[in-house]
Write a protein that binds this DNA or RNA. Structure first.
Length: 940
RNA sequence: GCCGGGUUGGCGGAAUGGUAGACGCGACGGUCUCAAAAACCGUUGUCCGCAAGGGCGUGCGGGUUCGACUCCCGCACCCGGCACCA
């Protein structure tokens, strides 16, 4: 019930008024194309002024659940930066696309029978609506979704560029396959086995070429996930050996799959991290993931066997201490090394009590194969079995036994090691278990027991030709590598943890490969004119899935079930023939691996991106720089997945001359997460957080029962999502923006607190009330001159806010604007000279309110390109300064002084301050430190 | 185990080696109101004190300095990443 005298002021800045203002300005920005950024050439060409600035957000996956208030955090931050830079005169490119292929849409399609595109398009529309209401200054002409046929076409085109390229180690870059073919044809290059090109048949030639392509089909161990019915990249498998998505077990299986030769770029991917402006944590994660380690390959001759064992070691300096060798159970040489019978005097410990080496090895291999990654991780006891063979240590011709053991991994280095128990903890444990000799080759500290991995002088390390004794680790490594190279027994080398990128998935909702196979089963690229290859309609969107632990099951992608699409008649140059299409699809990382380029030229039908547009938006600003997007903001969860793949593709495109930038993202910023309280009942089940009652004694109640509080990522699963729509409704978009920016530093995660949002609204309300009469709506601004104190506060604020926005310290920028507002409010200062700069400074954070006030101040144009205020140094110094007087480091007095005061005058004033006099208490003054005009420190 | 980041009032957080706690939330007191809400004004690290003022205080223990949240050494705990990677 309302009565007339209870009606609130009609022009109070409430959520209703804010909503009116916000919708009005959003419509006007759209109508006027306010945020459209001109390109140098093409359909978006226009007059360019100012420096370019390219901002990107990690684009969203259009989930059916819609947004919660955690999602827009990064989008608001980039929007503030973009709006600030426009006011500084920059030509700002900022748009938002959608990463729209992916599993959730496919699952939804399987459940409903609805085409994933239908649902995805609806979700994108809903997300666009929610985001538009935030007032983001995006160029709407540059938005796209990775599922758009126009976009898919170029994803497929890039795939073919990679397919039609090889890595020239000599030049350190990718080159087109056509150049390799030309080299072979002209005889400048011969096949690795020495065969001449002319002597090879067409099939052999294809095999030779296919074996070096950057995108290739390979039968090798991959991560097969029966529960999902698809294979997964290493990056998509958790440390526990389960799928990152769905948490199903993953099994190693040999399968024919597409891979990308990302390992060719290992060095550049590591080295160029030094050239980009990224958080150290992410750089470290990428370095770790690539896992470069320098060491040596050493060849061990084996008695009675032709092939030597090649091992990789990072400690070649300890070679004299190698007392046995170990192969991974899956190593190719194991069968050859396994002897007929146990050698005489073989300790029973080494045979596992089995009658023959063959049986013992077979049993051990079977046991190792049955172990999941998780079991391997839980049980790190060193086990193994002797093969019956002996290798010869090249430095001293000692016979050393060869074991297989599952602590040696098949995928790393050469899959074989020399074991040096004295200097390696794992080898030490194994040697203890199997009673193997331990020879120290590095002098440990007095009384040290066990494996010594620290620095020290080499000992026991000399033969007739070389002595390492007395050398430190680094010199010893160098000396032994030189010796090994002279003897042909080894060489210095580098290995990597990174594996080639598994690029095919047995899914429907992804990009089809632009590849067909001929009758010899060789992959053939489709010509550009046939792109994009579009997805066929299918009866069933899901791949065949199996019981999660059915390791022996076979992948069957949905596309394989559409024979009329799979088997196709094409004329690829030598008349119409029947081909078989690739039925796998690309992983959903494909679109995000190059989308930065498409923002720069979103409608180009002739090229991926016009070189002029690419050079303008992404090219290096100075020679020697990498170039790339000027600011890229997103969550840290993509530190090694998306960000590594995108760098790889970008570098291939650079090598092939399609882009001028060497890196996709020059500056990366990881925003934190918005967390939220979640509540569980006595069974541990989450209850609706917004229905929990908080009592004054600090307890929480739901439906009459006590519940307990925890903090977690906001979302549906914890039942604690707060939607932006609720916030628009209750406070308005500007309030939500200011609150999210004021909560704390952008890169730190922090809990959401709806009740604290009111503070942001009160601030905006105060600004509004300063300029506008709440009852009449009249402008209250006058043209009075500013007093000295106000001038000082104003210019200090201008100086600070500009720097804070520049440095993405949005929380302190908001605090400074609040201080200025409070100062003006308290003194009743409504002068145009003060409120106009305030409105301009507020504009990046609360653009709708700022536009409305700016227009009420009499400006007809949007303030989007109005100049951001510049501080006048003359007003940065204030008329008087508070000087702190310390006695023995403790503050004992404060005196107001003029900023220009001399050290002598200040010292005299300080020593006269009554409380300082009392504190000194007549003691002798030993020293006085003066930092005029702020500080005097007295030492007694 | 290794690598990276962190620990400041009731809460979120602020502090080029120079007044610790800006700004906001909450709480408490007040103005307005018949009352309440909203809004506005004031107080708010903690202890002693009527006050003036003083003691203590940035995870813990040391150190450097006239002066340390800040720099150095050691430790604890929390978060993230990697992990039998030779």
């Amino acid at each position: 019930m309302t009565t007339p005298d209870q009606t609130p002021a009609s022009y109070r800045y409430t959520s209703t008024l804010a909503g009116d203002i916000e919708r009005r300005w959003q419509d006007r920005w759209d109508a006027e194309g306010t945020f459209e950024a001109p390109n140098p050439v093409g359909d978006l060409a226009g007059e360019i002024t100012g420096e370019k600035y390219f901002i990107m957000d990690m684009f969203p996956y259009p989930s059916g659940a819609g947004l919660h208030v955690g999602h827009p955090l990064g989008y608001i931050a980039t929007d503030v930066v973009g709006r600030y830079r426009r006011m500084r005169g920059d030509n700002v490119l900022h748009a938002l696309g959608y990463d729209a292929f992916g599993l959730p849409a496919e699952i939804h399609a399987v459940q409903t029978g609805e085409h994933p595109r239908t649902n995805t398009v609806a979700n994108i529309a809903n997300m666009r609506r929610q985001l538009r209401r935030l007032g983001l200054a995006h160029d709407p002409r540059r938005s796209f979704a990775t599922i758009d046929p126009d976009f898919v076409r170029w994803t497929q085109w890039i795939f073919l560029q990679i397919f039609e390229a090889w890595y020239d180690e000599e030049q350190g870059r990718a080159r087109p396959i056509s150049e390799l073919r030309a080299d072979y044809e002209s005889g400048r290059r011969t096949a690795p086995d020495g065969a001449a090109w002319a002597e090879l048949g067409p099939f052999e030639r294809s095999i030779l070429i296919d074996s070096v392509r950057l995108a290739y089909v390979d039968e090798s161990p991959v991560n097969w996930c029966p529960g999902l019915g698809t294979v997964l990249a290493n990056e998509e498998v958790t440390a526990e050996g389960r799928s990152e998505r769905g948490n199903f077990p993953v099994f190693p299986r040999n399968l024919r799959q597409w891979k990308m030769r990302i390992t060719a770029y290992s060095d550049r991917l590591i080295d160029d991290l030094e050239r980009v402006d990224w958080p150290d944590s992410v750089k470290n994660m990428q370095r770790n993931w690539i896992g470069r380690s320098h060491g040596a390959r050493v060849s061990f001759r084996v008695e009675g066997v032709a092939a030597p064992i090649d091992v990789f070691t990072t400690r070649p300096d300890t070679l004299f201490g190698a007392t046995y060798a170990v192969l991974a159970p899956e190593h190719a040489l194991v069968d050859e090394l396994t002897t007929e019978e146990w050698p005489e005097d073989t300790p029973r410990l080494w045979t596992n009590g089995v009658a023959t080496p063959a049986e013992a090895v077979a049993a051990y291999r079977a046991m190792a194969a049955a172990k999941t990654d998780l079991e391997r991780q839980e049980n790190r006891d060193k086990t193994g079995v002797f093969t019956g063979s002996f290798a010869i240590n090249p430095v001293n011709d000692t016979r050393i036994p060869v074991f297989i053991a599952d602590y040696v991994l098949t995928g790393y280095g050469t899959g074989a090691i020399m074991a040096v128990p004295a200097q390696d903890e794992r080898d030490f444990e194994f040697a203890e278990s199997y009673d193997l000799p331990i020879i120290r080759t590095v002098q440990p500290p007095e009384g040290f027991e066990g494996a010594y991995t620290g620095e020290g002088a080499a000992i026991n390390s000399a033969n007739a030709e070389v002595s390492l004794d007395g050398l430190g680790i680094a010199e010893a490594k160098e000396a032994i590598i030189t010796w090994l190279q002279q003897r042909g027994a080894g060489e210095g080398t580098t290995t990597y943890r990174l594996r080639d990128w598994l690029f095919s998935r047995q899914r429907y909702w992804g990009e089809p490969f632009p590849i067909v196979y001929d009758e010899l089963d060789q992959p053939i690229a489709l010509p550009d004119s046939m792109l994009p290859v579009e997805l066929p309609e299918v009866p069933d969107y899901s791949p065949k899935t199996y019981a999660p632990d059915d390791a022996g099951s076979e992948p069957e992608p949905p596309l394989a079930r559409v024979p009329e699409w799979v088997n196709v008649q094409l004329d690829l140059g030598d008349g119409p023939r029947t081909y078989r299409r690739e039925t796998n699809t690309m992983p959903n990382w494909a679109g995000s691996s190059w989308y930065e380029l498409r923002y720069a030229d979103p409608h180009n039908t002739d090229r991926l991106v016009d070189p002029d547009n690419e050079r303008y938006w992404l090219g290096p600003r100075k020679p020697g720089e990498t170039g790339g997007v000027d600011l890229y903001v997103g969550g840290v969860e993509h530190a090694v997945l998306h960000l590594l793949y995108a760098r790889f593709w970008h570098k291939v495109l650079f090598d092939l001359g399609h882009v001028s930038s060497e890196e996709p993202f020059h500056k990366l910023f990881n925003q934190g997460y918005i967390q939220a309280e979640a509540f569980t009942d006595s069974r541990g089940v989450y209850v609706e957080a917004d229905q929990v009652e908080k009592r004054d004694d600090g307890t929480f109640w739901f439906d009459g029962s006590s519940v307990s509080r925890e903090y977690g990522k906001m979302g549906k699963s914890l039942k604690n999502a707060v939607t932006p729509d609720e916030m628009y409704e209750a406070y308005g978009a500007d309030t939500l923006r200011v609150y999210e920016m004021a909560m704390g530093p952008l890169d730190v995660s922090r809990p959401w607190e709806t009740r604290a949002v009111i503070g942001a609204q009160r601030f905006l309300q105060r600004v509004w009330r300063l300029l506008v009469d709440e009852d009449s709506g009249d402008l209250l601004v006058d043209d009075a001159d500013l007093d000295a104190a106000t001038l000082h506060v104003l210019h200090v604020t201008i100086d600070g806010v500009g720097g804070d926005l520049e440095g993405m310290r949005f929380n302190t920028a908001v605090a400074k604007l609040i201080e200025l507002t409070n100062h003006l409010t308290k003194d009743g200062v409504r002068s145009r000279a003060a409120v106009e700069p305030l409105v301009l400074m507020l504009a990046p954070l609360a653009p709708h309110l700022a536009e409305e006030l700016w227009s009420r101040l009499g400006h007809e144009e949007s303030l989007t390109h109005a100049p951001f205020p510049v501080a006048d140094p003359a007003h940065l110094a204030s008329a008087s300064v508070t000087c702190v007087v310390q006695v023995l480091g403790k503050v004992r007095g404060k005196i107001e002084v003029s900023p220009g005061i001399t050290d002598e005058e200040l010292t005299a004033l300080a020593l006269a301050e009554p409380n300082v006099v009392r504190s000194i208490d007549g003691r002798e003054i030993r020293k006085i430190i003066v930092r005029a005009p702020k500080l005097v420190s007295v030492v007694v």
